[in-house]
């Protein structure tokens, strides 16, 4: 089942690239770089999340920083 989700993620990324790539001008090098890096990053993140859904994320990071203050609001 998990390989199917990975396949889905890759298909979405390919569709995104097929749609967006021809629309970026040849001179827009920075835009191309940003697009490639962001797409690759998001695919990697999504695939990792498929296999390790319970991986500690931004919420845990923020929680670790603000926990002492957050305790004040607990009842």
């Amino acid at each position: 089942m998990k390989w199917l989700m990975v396949l889905g993620i890759v298909v979405v990324a390919i569709l995104m690239t097929l749609y967006e790539w021809p629309k970026i001008n040849k001179e827009q090098k920075r835009e191309k770089k940003a697009f490639v890096v962001l797409t690759a990053g998001s695919v990697i993140l999504a695939v990792v999340l498929v296999y390790f859904p319970a991986m500690p994320g931004p919420t845990q990071l923020v929680d670790a920083i603000f926990k002492p203050l957050g305790k004040l609001l607990e009842q």
């Binding site: 995104m16 835009e31 697009f35 990053g41 998001s42 999504a46 859904p53 919420t59």
Partner: peptide, 30 residues
């Protein structure tokens, strides 16, 4: 993000950021 990276157009990064957004949303809590 477009201003942070000094891009001349923000449209190319809309879909990749949407992708990240979906991942973050699934990731944000169990």
């Amino acid at each position: 993000t477009a201003q942070w990276l000094r891009l001349s157009d923000y449209r190319p990064i809309v879909f990749p950021i949407g992708f990240v957004l979906v991942s973050v949303s699934m990731w944000s809590a169990s």
